[in-house]
């Protein structure tokens, strides 16, 4: 059993308890449950951080294994949600973040721990930039997704004049979710663009772009993201439409991430590389 697998088991355990605790704490409003959930989430994040530090101590981003990648992405998602919680006092977004982190850690548990060995001429700064910028934008997109889901839920309730449930009555306002969505897109799109550009400049991605579905999908996501960015920043769009769009972009990105995994896309690219 490798280090990634051991940490993945620990992370699955802690993130699942944290997510369950946050869910039941929100429903029951019991202070003890909420406090326990916060402690478990922080413990999971701490373990995630230690695993990331260990990873960077022994390897580098350009030797990312299939089991380490989801853990790093989970770390980025939870880190950004915790920052949003500290800055904007939006506790509920930690619930969506821990749930996504849990899914990623399960994926890590089921993936190969073998590190991708790159030829020296491919191991470059652009690859590190490609991965780190995309992980950061992934974390921000997950935040926009969580805020978007909650916005759509509340908007629907308000439009239909449905009574406030135990879950919805303590939720922050619609405007708070819209603000989070706005900031996440504002910071996430440039990072996504940077990550994608670095990937193309790296080499293998650029040469195989046309025939690879993953690359085409990434370009499609970028186009949607650019549209959302333009609508938000230039046209001043806000509310349900932008929330739905953020949800759609995140869903397609998650699919793209899944395709990357199932097709071992990056490995295939490298094998094809002369």
């Amino acid at each position: 059993m490798t280090f990634e697998h051991i940490t993945a088991i620990g992370l699955v355990f802690l993130y699942s308890l944290g997510a369950l605790g946050l869910f039941f704490g929100t429903l029951s409003k019991r202070r003890a449950v909420n406090a326990a959930a916060d402690i478990l989430t922080l413990a999971a994040f701490l373990l995630n951080t230690l695993a990331a530090i260990y990873f960077f101590a022994v390897q580098s981003l350009d030797a990312l294994s299939a089991s380490a990648a989801p853990q790093l992405l989970a770390w980025a998602i939870v880190f950004i949600s915790l920052c949003a919680r500290l800055l904007l006092r939006l506790r509920i977004l930690t619930l969506t973040a821990t749930t996504l982190a849990l899914v990623l850690c399960v994926l890590s548990l089921r993936s190969s721990p073998t590190a991708l060995v790159l030829p020296d001429n491919l191991s470059a700064l652009f690859l590190t930039l490609h991965i780190s910028a995309l992980f950061a934008s992934g974390g921000l997109l997950a935040l926009a997704f969580g805020a978007g889901l909650l916005f759509v839920h509340m908007d629907r309730k308000l439009k239909r004049k449905a009574p406030a449930t135990v879950f919805s009555q303590d939720l922050p306002s619609l405007s708070s979710f819209d603000t989070v969505n706005r900031y996440a897109v504002l910071a996430g799109f440039p990072l996504y663009t940077l990550g994608l550009t670095a990937g193309f400049l790296w080499g293998p991605l650029f040469s195989q772009a046309i025939e690879n579905p993953k690359v085409l999908l990434s370009l499609f996501i970028w186009a949607l993201y650019a549209l959302l960015f333009y609508q938000r920043m230039a046209l001043g769009y806000r509310g349900r439409k932008t929330a739905v769009m953020a949800i759609a972009i995140f869903t397609i990105s998650a699919l793209s991430f899944g395709i990357d995994y199932s097709l071992s896309h990056h490995s295939a690219l490298l094998r094809a590389w002369p």
Partner: peptide
């Protein structure tokens, strides 16, 4: 209801 929409 106004607070649920606008918050602050």
């Amino acid at each position: 209801l106004a607070k649920r929409i606008f918050g602050d």
